[in-house]
């Protein structure tokens, strides 16, 4: 019951932020010096009449607040506008490209969590031993290396030098094996993983490094807790203490960090999609920017902002679900 109420409250809280995102994007798009129609025409000489007609068609002759109201009204009906460059509804384009980006970001997190948690625990239990020092160095390198350069280096080693993994594109399992001409689902799965491996590591390394350090700090703190001392005094084996008593509490901050870092991961996806030629939202954004396709740029920004907000809500709710101490806001 409490949890449901908390979820609803959390969703309501997100509404002003979502409206704010549209306002900011809208202002940014209208901040551009010179009028968008001229930019679109890119210096071509056209009659004043034509310009006026285009302005009218896109409603650019009306004051900004009126245009914003129209934009919001359309947005609520799922209409993000019309892409001038591609002559297609922005919503269609965005929906089509969201899959690859989500697949990339989710797998990068999976990689980060699967590696960071065991390594963080190892570093915490072997504090100031070689394993701890190595984990420190790995974390430092992970935080300091540009993700796109990691991608380039991975391509150089695994795709160009060794030739074992593909350097570009992804295989989308939802298109089915026939689309790619694979023999069946096992091969589809195999190819999906093969294509995903390098971009996943490139995008996930930064997250892995951050999470590993947090996991180490949390485990050290957790292992010094009273309940661990008590368990030791009762003679509970060290392995059990680690697995049962210390581990669970230490995971809570990890969830928060995952939610907050989603913003970095979504931004990083733009770079990784560029390096690995993945047709996701990031590449679409870059193409839209080069073509100065304003409606498309706004649409993508709004969708990515929304993805982040939803991600944070999901982590908040799962945090509340896991940690019984969270009071869902009501104090009784």
């Amino acid at each position: 019951m409490g949890l449901l109420r908390y979820t609803v409250a959390r969703l309501i809280q997100a509404i002003p932020v979502l409206i704010g995102i549209t306002v900011i994007t809208f202002i940014l798009a209208n901040l551009a010096p010179g009028d968008p129609v001229r930019l679109m025409l890119q210096g071509q000489q056209v009659d004043q009449e034509v310009i006026e007609r285009v302005e009218q068609q896109y409603g650019l002759d009306r004051p900004i607040h009126e245009r914003y109201v129209t934009y919001m009204a359309n947005l609520l009906q799922g209409d993000l506008g019309h892409s001038i460059q591609r002559d297609r509804p922005v919503t269609d384009l965005v929906v089509q490209r969201a899959g690859p980006t989500l697949m990339l970001v989710v797998s990068a997190y999976a990689f980060a969590l699967i590696t960071a948690i065991p390594l963080g625990i190892l570093a915490a239990t072997r504090r100031n031993e070689p394993a701890d020092h190595i984990s420190r160095i790995v974390a430092l390198l992970g935080v300091s290396t540009p993700s796109f350069w990691i991608g380039i280096m991975l391509i150089l080693v695994f795709a160009i030098q060794l030739g074992v993994l593909p350097s570009s594109g992804l295989v989308y399992p939802w298109w089915g094996p026939d689309h790619y001409g694979y023999s069946g689902y096992p091969e589809l799965l195999y190819q999906t993983i093969r294509h995903l491996l390098l971009p996943m590591v490139a995008l996930g390394t930064l997250q892995m490094a951050t999470l590993m350090r947090v996991e180490r700090t949390q485990m050290i703190e957790s292992l010094q807790g009273e309940y661990v001392k008590l368990a030791r005094a009762y003679g509970v084996p060290e392995r059990t203490i680690l697995r049962k008593h210390a581990f669970q509490v230490a995971q809570l901050p990890i969830i928060t960090i995952v939610g907050l870092n989603l913003s970095t991961a979504l931004g990083g996806a733009v770079l990784i999609e560029y390096v690995f030629n993945i047709n996701g939202l990031g590449r679409l954004l870059l193409e839209a920017i080069i073509g100065l396709d304003y409606q498309l740029i706004m649409g993508i920004t709004v969708v990515i902002g929304t993805m982040f907000v939803i991600g944070v809500i999901i982590t908040d709710i799962s945090y509340a679900y896991i940690d019984p101490r969270v009071t869902y806001g009501d104090r009784e």
């Binding site: 995102i21 900011i24 970095t264």
Partner: peptide
């Protein structure tokens, strides 16, 4: 808070 909700790299590019 709102500015926080747009990934920095994307906000900066745009």
């Amino acid at each position: 808070e709102t500015v926080y909700a747009i990934p920095p790299l994307i906000l900066i590019i745009v």
